[in-house]
Amino acid sequence: MINIKKNIDEIKNNQVLIEFKGVSKNYANGTHALNDVNIRINKGEFVFVVGASGAGKSTFIKLIMHEEKCNTGEVIVNGYRMSKIKRREVPYFRRTMGIVFQDFRLIPNMTVFGNVAFSLRVVGASSKDIRKRVAAALSMVGLGDKARCYPNELSGGEQQRVGLARALVNNPQIIIADEPTGNVDPEMSYEIVDLLTEINRRGTTVVMVTHEHQLVRDFGRRVIMLEKGRIVADNEEGAVQ
């Protein structure tokens, strides 16, 4: 009975959002960053990507957001084939995802509100819409009272929460985060991942790169492990060695 329910859930959720088919990536200087990577990430999943420095985690992320192109194989994200996508389609593709950076990437001379509103301006939202959605996003990350602050008046953890608010204010299908906790105090890291979990619970797929194994273990999610450009483990339930 339980199995049947699980299967139904799987069929319902079995909508592949990110797919790598035999993907290899060599940089111009000859570095083999990824070798024959095959992976599927379904809609609604929460995935950690782990591995040693230089293992190819950031490359993996860059291929998903079409910052780099693979040399062989095919990357399909949200129905877009990365080998076929046209330059003028890239902005519209990017609007289906929210990107969180390790170094926050907040604009220093803009308030918290302005930084989050930025991604709504790009899509031409109305001022009224912007006010409403930015307020909602900021209260979701617990910064409702900091809207008028400037980035340099915030702690690292708070700045990253602004980054998160900016990524999710557009209601993206996917949130992609390359070491979002890399520049944040350990306690703050948990808060960030808690937030990502909450965002995921509301239906957004999350792909997060991290170095912090303890954190991965504690949150118990799917873990993709990279080593020298290959996937060496792909475990459910946070089973890191």
Binding site: M65, R88, P91, R94, R95, F101, I107, V122
Partner: peptide, 16 residues
């Protein structure tokens, strides 16, 4: 540069 890179990341078109 920072501003442009963020604009690109959140899906701004080149004309924008």
């Amino acid at each position: 540069k920072l501003e442009i890179s963020i604009m690109k990341a959140v899906g701004a078109t080149n004309n924008f």
